[in-house]
Nucleic acid binder design. Structure first.
Length: 504
RNA sequence: GCCCCCAUGGUCUAGCGGCCUAGGACGCCACCCUUUCAAGGUGGAGAUCGCGGGUUCGAAUCCCGCUGGGGGUACCA
């Protein structure tokens, strides 16, 4: 059942309000909307709902568009790219809302309200005290022309409110949940046009969705309670209703409340800066509230476009699971990305930390980084760990404690003999042929009566300055013979003075 | 308070009346691999499908109630 009664080409939109960064909940709604558009060869539109002058934050427009681009959710119409239904900022469409509000007024679906914010606040307070449900008392619903003129003469600018039917019900259909019915007498005469001339969400979203030819309204489930208002508006204008699909909320890991945009950690850009891959982020987000079957979990964007099904999105709220996201990220780093690709993403970070200079593709440095990244990627959970993980392939390891060279249950003197013998072996065999060097060093360990580990660990520390590294022989190969020997020499000197101090 | 939505292991979920002695993934535990750390492999613990009523030959799957959780209740979105 494809839900689109008159078979119009699919047009969907993501419509954030510029009041902060794009958070993961919004990102998932955007993703689902985008996938739906792409799989139906439809249009994905970005519209900025900047109708709240008080909460408006200009910088968030950039951060939202940056987030969407980073995730790979490119819009066909909207800011920067334009389109036939623009402008795509609601603040630039004010006349449209005014016109439509007037139409409603003329048709008797709306009325002017002159109540002051103070009266409204007092009313709410009174209702609260009396234990009655809060809500506008429709004080201005039936004002006469004379009364309205009197308020005007006092210089009061009215707001325009929706004249909600007093009885009956309003039913709508949600793609994920089915029919939802609301009793009209529980609905409010919501403000449609504020006294500052800006529309509220309710008016703006309906007018724009219609004007932009939106076929499917996707948004967070926090909008379900106002769906009847929107339905009444669509009907009042005489427009054919779009299909509604409310995405479930993403809850905090502990399940207590939604992951709100107020939480900095939930910002998409923060994830980017922490070293998450957009591919992993997209893949994880797709799996919050949706699953293809009981086997496949890894999806490229193209596969998601092919396999995603909006109607199969679960209507129940889901908690955000950082552990699984981290696993996904590391899985992409280790198993999905090509090494060159991975290295290409680490390089900017290396430059930033001054570990390399320019490293154009094909250069020696570039090749070295690719080799090094290939060796350490199985330990990389985040892109940001890259520089530290491969630093010793690029620059001399910082000074380390001589004690690191001496494994447990091993005599420093044995370590010293081992390192010297190993140095000689490396000088002779070189590091290029891993197998040959391994064979030779194992023999050295044998001759000295050492276990492999008792010889290998000191070499590892000597060459990398740390006790954890990729396989010893691949590490030596990439560090190369010359630098390996120099570091062995350094370690031998270091150990000698260490032993001397111990002897004193 | 009122309105709306939701409900399968700790978490994300598969399941859409019999294939379920409920499958997968993350996390957790053990073992294997091993020159370190990872990665990987194998196995395991963990769910009387929130509770109670129905409907049915038969219910995790359909209906009702309850409980619990979430959301909304602004001249914010």
């Amino acid at each position: 059942m494809m839900t689109n009664p008159d078979n119009r080409p699919v047009r969907v939109r993501f419509a954030p309000s510029p009041t902060g960064d794009l958070h993961v909940g919004g990102a998932r709604t955007a993703l689902f909307t985008y996938l739906f558009a792409r799989q139906h060869d439809g249009a994905f539109i970005l519209r900025i709902e900047d109708t709240d002058q008080k909460r408006y934050d200009e910088s968030s427009i950039t951060s939202i568009t940056e987030s969407l681009r980073w995730l790979g959710l490119h819009w066909d119409e909207g800011p920067d790219v334009g389109g036939p239904h623009g402008p795509y900022f609601q603040s630039q469409r004010l006349h449209l809302y005014r016109e439509h509000a007037d139409r409603l007024l003329a048709k008797g679906y709306a009325y002017e309200c002159f109540c002051s914010p103070e009266r409204l606040a007092a009313l709410r307070e009174e209702q609260r005290k009396a234990g009655r449900p809060p809500g506008y008392d429709r004080h201005c619903r039936n004002l006469s022309d004379e009364e309205r003129q009197a308020f005007r003469d006092q210089g009061i600018t009215p707001v325009i409110r929706l004249k909600v039917p007093l009885d009956g019900t309003t039913s709508g259909y949600d793609l994920l949940r089915g029919a939802i019915t609301f009793e009209n007498n529980k609905l409010e005469d919501a403000v449609l046009l504020k006294s500052d001339g800006y529309p509220t969400y309710h008016l703006a979203v309906v007018v724009d969705d219609h004007d932009m030819g939106i076929t499917h309204v996707t948004r967070g489930e926090e909008w379900i309670p106002s769906m009847p208002l929107h339905l009444i508006l669509w009907d009042a204008f005489g427009w054919e209703r779009p299909v509604f699909a409310h995405m479930p909320t993403i809850l905090k890991p502990d399940g207590k409340g939604k992951l709100s945009k107020r939480e900095g950690a939930a910002s998409v850009l923060v994830f980017r800066d922490k070293g998450y891959l957009p591919e992993a982020m997209v893949n994880y987000l797709a799996l919050v509230g949706w699953a293809y079957d009981d086997r496949q979990e890894i999806f490229s964007m193209d596969e998601l476009i092919e396999k995603f099904d909006l109607e199969r999105v679960s209507p129940s709220p889901a908690r955000f699971n950082y552990e699984k996201l981290d696993w996904m990220n590391q899985y992409y780093i280790n198993h999905i990305l090509e090494v060159e690709d991975l290295a290409g993403r680490v390089i900017p970070l290396l430059k930033q930390e001054g570990l390399i200079g320019d490293a154009p593709e094909g250069s020696e440095t570039y090749k070295l980084v690719v080799d090094a990244v290939g060796l350490v990627k199985d330990k990389m959970k985040f892109l940001t760990e890259g520089p530290d993980l491969i630093s010793y392939f690029l620059v001399e390891p910082p000074d380390y404690d001589a004690g690191l060279l001496v494994p447990r249950k091993t005599e420093p003197a044995d370590v010293l003999r081992g390192l010297e013998a190993a140095r000689a072996a490396i000088a002779e065999v070189g590091t290029e042929d891993e197998a040959a060097l391994e064979e030779r060093l194992r023999a050295v360990a044998d001759e000295l009566g050492l276990k492999a580990g008792q010889l290998f660990m000191p070499i590892r520390v000597a060459v990398t300055g740390r006790t954890a590294s990729p396989g010893l022989f691949e590490t030596l190969r990439v560090v190369n013979t010359e630098r390996s020997l120099a570091r062995m020499d350094r370690a031998i000197e270091k150990l000698k003075s260490h032993v001397a101090v111990e002897a004193d």
